[in-house]
Simulated scan of single mutants.
Amino acid sequence: MTHNTPLSPRPVRRLSEVRRRVMSTARLRAHGISTAELDEQCRPGGPWRQILPGIVLLHPGPPTSEERLHAALLYAARESAAGMPGVPSQPNADEPHRPVYKEAMITGLAALALYGFASAPPLTSLDRIDVLVPRLRRLRTTGYVRILRTPALPTPRQVTGLPVAPVARALADAVAELTEGGAVRRLLTEAVRAGHCEPAAVVRELTQAKLLSRPHVVDAVDSLVAEGRAVAEDHLYRMVREHGLPDPVWNVDLRLPGGPHLGGVDAYWPEQAVAVELDTRAPRQDDDALWSEYARKREHLERLGITVVHLTPRKLRHALEQQAAVVRTALMASNDREPAAYVLVLPR
């Protein structure tokens, strides 16, 4: 058999349950259903009905949430080598049929509901399902499916067997349609508090979507950054407590006696002259200038003999033990360094 040899039609009974309930007209024809029979089955009051262009629901009742999602992806997916959307060119006959949706993924509020966001409406209450496709695809918004386009399609995550946009991208697509500041703030806060993604990733997507010109989004981002810092600080406290590090002084300003202010740090060990600084910056238009300020402060402190350990919320979330080892190494190395300059440690 060559790759051009047509595949024998697969009996409908051998398809997975959802695939027996929602199918494309192309797939139905591959199973031997003629156009005339299809029209007869989809007549008013008939046992089937067309719920999207080229997509048929194989029962007369309303579609379930799962059926609506699969139908939306079937509608938007690029045709496979077999000539049918959502169908791999060489399915394994020994395994249940699993649809492969090429160049299409669920995004927006439907994606957040699939991720389990408590602040997102349930799938059953959504009038529309957003589907993300490449910019050059010739598709139109129709029925309950809204087509969103992007120059570069992100790598989807598989959630309940469906391709779903990464959380940060799904958030940006959802926020683009929301006008109520409280709803936006709840979604962004939950994304960080529940560990779905980092604040920087969310703000990056919002910036690319040109949403930071909207006042209610800016207000929500300020809350997001504050939430991200609070979560990162909790991880920092836990790192010190659980990994046997000596107690530092927390959230202090450093100043030369009679001299200039050196800047604030999140944790400081005066005897070892080691400081920890959390990088909770959100990428905005002035990010380069802010990073330059961070770099200048670090260089100044290190010229005075103070070791600065730079930690990110992501590192603290995913590699806490490793970050504790980094701080412990800096503390132990203080015995091998020249004494640091004397600095005043003041509450911040």
Rank of each mutant, 00 (worst) to 15 (best):
P154S: 04
G181N: 07
V221C: 03
A191V: 12
D222Y: 08
T207F: 11
R185M: 13
D222P: 03
A176V: 11
H216I: 11
T179H: 09
G161H: 03
L188R: 04
L178Y: 12
R204W: 13
G161I: 09
R186F: 02
P199Q: 09
E180K: 08
A174K: 03
P199T: 13
A152G: 02
P166R: 08
R149W: 09
A165G: 01
Q158N: 14
T189R: 05
V159W: 04
R146N: 10
L212Y: 06
R138V: 13
P166H: 07
T150N: 01
A165S: 10
L212A: 06
R169K: 10
G182Y: 03
T207H: 13
T207Y: 12
T207E: 14
R137S: 10
A191S: 13
L136V: 12
V221T: 02
L162A: 06
Y144G: 10
P151G: 07
V167P: 00
G182Q: 05
V184L: 05
A152Y: 07
R137L: 02
T142Q: 15
L136Q: 14
R185H: 13
R185D: 15
A165R: 04
L211D: 00
A165T: 09
V203D: 02
R146E: 13
R169D: 12
V218D: 09
G195W: 12
R169P: 00
L148D: 10
T189F: 01
L148Q: 12
L187K: 08
A191E: 09
E205A: 11
P154D: 05
D222R: 14
R157Q: 14
L153D: 01
T179G: 11
A183I: 09
R186W: 07
R193P: 00
R169W: 06
E177A: 15
V203I: 08
P151W: 08
A220F: 00
T160S: 15
L153I: 00
I147P: 06
A168G: 06
A165V: 10
E190Y: 11
R146V: 15
P199D: 09
P151D: 11
V159N: 02
T189G: 03
A201R: 11
V164R: 03
G161N: 04
T179P: 00
V184W: 03
D222G: 09
H216S: 06
D173W: 02
P154T: 08
A168L: 01
L187F: 08
P156G: 13
T179L: 07
P151H: 08
T155L: 04
V203R: 00
D173E: 07
R186L: 12
T142K: 14
R214N: 09
P163E: 13
A183E: 12
P154K: 03
R138D: 12
T142M: 11
A201H: 08
P166C: 09
R135F: 13
R146Y: 06
E180D: 14
I147K: 02
P151L: 08
L188Y: 03
A170F: 05
V145T: 01
L162W: 04
V202M: 02
R214C: 07
R140E: 14
R149M: 09
Q158G: 12
T207I: 10
A194M: 02
C197N: 04
T141I: 12
T160Y: 11
E190V: 14
R157Y: 06
